[in-house]
């Protein structure tokens, strides 16, 4: 009997997982499209007075993204003769895979999460850095000088900025006392600032340094300007992506913008209280959760893309010294300060 009960539970769990997987499959292209459309096309056009993306289809250039999609669809699939064919084909899949795995732990409601892992945020950062392997594979397998240079730059950049990202998150983990993202959301929802519980305790107030570090490092992890030396179009003709065309190129785009969506959601969860609104619990929270998270993550994404469209590219040595001489020391000091305050004040 108990075996049967367990089995029934397993089937229930299995179909839930199937639904959640389909949702993740839908959310990643959706997120990439929303960010690509809202920020890359429209916001950039307004900020930089670009006429092209405002034109197709009449009103505000709404047709631009559809046109881009159609263009990718009818591109011939070209693989250079010199390429390491199997690795070349696998590289975009590895990058998309790393994007998918981040969404495993991001909660959008009290129960709306694929799996609430105990090591949640640690896991998210670990799988997000898997994309380095895909980038190196793409650069190496293309057997192109520019691709290899771009891949090496990307690897050097991604590992250098992985550390500020990790160190920024440690402060939040110390405050929340857990690595589970649901636990971190709850800690912010039920927290208080100077005894006032009206807005809970979004960690952006107490961990502002961490928030700033996280955004800078996330910007570099996404190889967005001002940290886009690996794909610098004027020096490296798109770096490790140079030999990819059509859908294979589109996967890099989905990987980049899907990961941007995931990082914005992570930042919103870690520092802005995630899906929660203080005082809202139960079914209402379940219903409102995804929308609240979406609003918060769009606010974070707006900041990230604002920076992207505003600053010129750094130089490669400036990039490395910013990570090692500024961000990492600040991150370490932040951890020590947060630890001392946590033990002394509680």
């Amino acid at each position: 009997m108990s075996v049967l009960a367990t089995l029934a539970l397993d089937i229930g769990w299995g179909s839930t997982l199937a639904i959640k997987t389909i949702l993740v499959l839908a959310i990643i292209p959706f997120g990439a499209l929303v960010l690509g459309y809202t920020f890359l096309l429209k916001m950039m056009s307004h900020m930089q007075s670009r006429l092209g993306p405002m034109d197709p289809g009449g009103f505000h250039g709404w047709f631009q993204l559809v046109g881009d999609g159609l263009k990718f669809m009818q591109k011939e699939d070209i693989m250079p003769a010199e390429a390491d064919r199997r690795v070349f084909a696998m590289a975009p899949a590895v990058i998309v895979m790393s994007t998918f795995l981040i969404f495993l732990v991001i909660p959008a409601g009290p129960r709306t999460v694929v799996e609430d892992l105990d090591v949640g945020v640690f896991y998210a950062l670990a799988v997000s850095s898997l994309s380095v392997i895909g980038v190196l594979m793409a650069g190496w397998a293309s057997s192109n000088k520019f691709a290899l240079l771009g891949a090496l730059r990307a690897a050097g950049q991604l590992i250098a900025y992985e550390l500020p990202l990790l160190l920024a998150v440690v402060g939040v983990v110390i405050q929340a006392g857990t690595m589970s993202l649901q636990g971190i959301v709850t800690a912010q929802q039920d927290g208080s600032i100077f005894g006032i519980t009206a807005i809970g305790n979004p960690f952006i107030f107490t961990q502002f340094i961490g928030f700033a570090l996280f955004l800078v490092a996330a910007q570099a992890e996404l190889t967005q300007p001002p940290f886009d030396m690996p794909v610098a179009e004027s020096e490296l003709i798109s770096g490790y992506m140079v030999e990819y065309s059509g859908f294979r190129f589109l996967f890099f785009f989905i990987g980049e913008f899907g990961t941007a969506f995931a990082f914005a959601a992570l930042a919103a969860t870690l520092f802005l209280g995630g899906w929660a609104i203080p005082g809202v619990h139960g079914a209402t929270a379940e219903l409102l959760g995804p929308f609240v998270l979406f609003v918060k993550l769009m606010a974070v994404a707006f900041l990230m893309f604002w920076v992207r469209f505003t600053y010129p590219r750094l130089r490669e040595d400036q990039l490395q010294s910013l990570a090692w001489k500024v961000l990492i020391p600040i991150g370490l000091i932040n951890i020590v300060a947060t630890g001392i305050l946590k033990v002394a004040v509680g």
Binding site: V24, L101, F103
Partner: peptide, 13 residues
């Protein structure tokens, strides 16, 4: 769950 999501990524690609 991790394995299923890896599978989903491969299915999409």
């Amino acid at each position: 769950a991790v394995a299923v999501l890896i599978g989903a990524a491969l299915v999409m690609v």
